[in-house]
């Protein structure tokens, strides 16, 4: 899977309340509607700025806080193709894999707002086209790679009816 897009850069400790606020998430299961409010408390214009395939790039501890799966789902429905960060909080990380949103762990100091990235998940390489550099990405545990490649945990259960790892 190769992903291409522009960077929307955020800092450390981006929590799931910032990704999708409790003000919105309790009201509806309409993820297209929730997507309009992604990152709203940090950047009210965020949704309007995103082009299909863009990336959210953060620092340390991305996705900390609440277990709300509306966070990755709203990101997916805002047409973001992957989240890239130095490290992730564990519940968010699992939720992304389960919902089929690629999460990429790597050094993000050399990635800036507006940079163009190209990510090859199989090869494990992130190419910053703007800066002309390659950044190594941490491999996913095999269980997660399998769930992600099957399109998420719902698809996994549809196929096997329970957990069935290679």
């Amino acid at each position: 899977m190769e992903l291409k897009g522009r960077v929307h850069k955020f800092g450390d400790d981006i929590n799931t309340d910032y990704i999708i606020s409790g003000r919105h998430k309790f009201k509806t299961l309409d993820m297209k509607e929730l997507a309009k409010h992604v990152m709203e408390d940090l950047d009210p214009d965020f949704y309007a700025k995103v082009a299909k395939g863009d990336f959210i790039v953060g620092g340390r501890n991305f996705g900390c806080g609440s277990s709300r799966e509306q966070a990755p789902l709203a990101i997916i429905n805002a047409d973001i193709s992957a989240v890239v960060a130095k490290s992730f909080a564990r519940i968010f990380y699992r939720n992304c894999i389960n919902t089929g949103l690629p999460v990429i762990e790597c050094d993000t100091d050399q990635i800036d707002e507006g940079d163009e990235l190209q990510i090859d998940l199989q090869a494990g390489v992130l190419h910053n086209r703007t800066k002309g550099i390659d950044i190594k990405i941490a491999p996913l545990p095999s269980v997660m790679l399998q769930i992600l490649s099957e399109g998420g945990l719902i698809e996994h259960f549809k196929k096997y009816g329970t957990f069935n790892f290679n």
């Binding site: 277990s67 709300r68 799966e69 990755p72 519940i91 699992r94 939720n95 389960n98 919902t99 269980v143 998420g152 945990l153 719902i154 259960f157 009816g161 329970t162 957990f163 790892f165």
Partner: peptide, 18 residues
Amino acid sequence: TGVGSTDLAAGLIAGKLW
């Protein structure tokens, strides 16, 4: 431990989780 909704669904069905 805390999980998201899809892990919850898997747990409800299988009575197990990874």
